[in-house]
């Protein structure tokens, strides 16, 4: 379970001054459901998810993730979270097994538990063939599988995905989507950010539309369709953010935001 309460993050930039990256964002993600955070580039998705994963601290507001407060108890939050982003890479000089085991050790698991868990994950993800090869020689698909195994080594209750299909080929992207569904079906709390409309439509139980750092709309797909009197997700999105002009203006000013 994730409960974000008035999450706010401001960055200081020498040239541009104070940048409000995320402004007063509140939402709840339930176990066994996928919460989709939809937004254009620079809308504040990554910043929000990084706050939930305790990689960065909120300027104000807070969130409870898997029962722990992100500000008061970030280490405990991380112990129950699996974080997978396009920016979380693998150590090229380690083998897949070493990579996964390293994170098991960092999660204070003992060697027997790590070995058993790796065996289980390798079965699940069909990784046995390349488990003892070095990650720098992997194909994109192999890398993604290893990354997934890395996020799952400690069997986290909450999964945070930050644009995990970014730059992937269709096959790998589909595998990721399938895997995210499995997480939900196993009762995990899942939050998934993307700017791809079709992914949201297919995958997410609840959709939050984030624009210029603010959560501008939230609901299930039917609820949003009803509210904006549109069936197409893209149309809903454009209406929710205040029209194409607003979207273009936001993209221009937010260029380069984290």
């Amino acid at each position: 379970m994730i409960t974000a309460r008035n999450l706010t993050k401001h960055f200081h930039d020498k040239k541009r001054g104070l940048i409000p990256a995320v402004e007063d964002v509140s939402f709840t993600c339930q176990p066994g459901r996928i919460y989709g955070l939809l937004g254009a580039n620079g809308a504040g998705k990554t910043t929000t998810l990084r706050m939930l994963a305790t990689l960065i601290q909120p300027t104000s507001g807070t969130a409870t993730v898997a029962g722990h407060d992100v500000v008061a108890d970030p280490v405990k939050v991380r112990a129950h979270v699996g974080f997978l982003a396009a920016s979380t890479a693998l150590y090229g000089r380690l083998t897949a097994r070493e990579m996964i085991a390293y994170f098991g050790q960092l999660h204070d698991m003992d060697d027997a538990a790590i070995a058993a868990r790796i065996r289980f994950l390798a079965d699940e993800l069909d990784m046995h063939e390349f488990l003892d090869r070095r990650c720098d020689k992997f194909s994109t698909g192999m890398k993604q599988k290893t990354s997934i195994a890395r996020t799952l080594i400690h069997d986290p209750a909450v999964m945070i995905f930050d644009e995990p299909t970014l730059g992937l080929d269709v096959m790998t992207a589909r595998a990721i989507v399938r895997f995210v569904r499995q997480c939900r079906d196993r009762g995990r709390t899942v939050i998934y950010s993307t700017h791809v409309m079709s992914e949201v439509e297919k995958l997410c139980d609840v959709i939050g539309i984030i624009h210029a750092g603010r959560l501008v709309a939230e609901g299930t797909l039917p609820q949003l369709q009803e509210r904006y009197a549109e069936t197409d997700m893209e149309e809903i999105f454009v209406k929710a953010v205040g029209g194409e002009a607003a979207l273009a203006a936001a993209l221009e000013t937010k260029e380069g935001r984290v």
């Binding site: 990689l55 991380r78 112990a79 920016s87 979380t88 890479a89 090229g92 999660h107 890395r150």
Partner: peptide
Amino acid sequence: ERGTMETLLCSPVR
């Protein structure tokens, strides 16, 4: 540069 710093920082290690 290789993008592993963020991976490492999501582990529950201070």
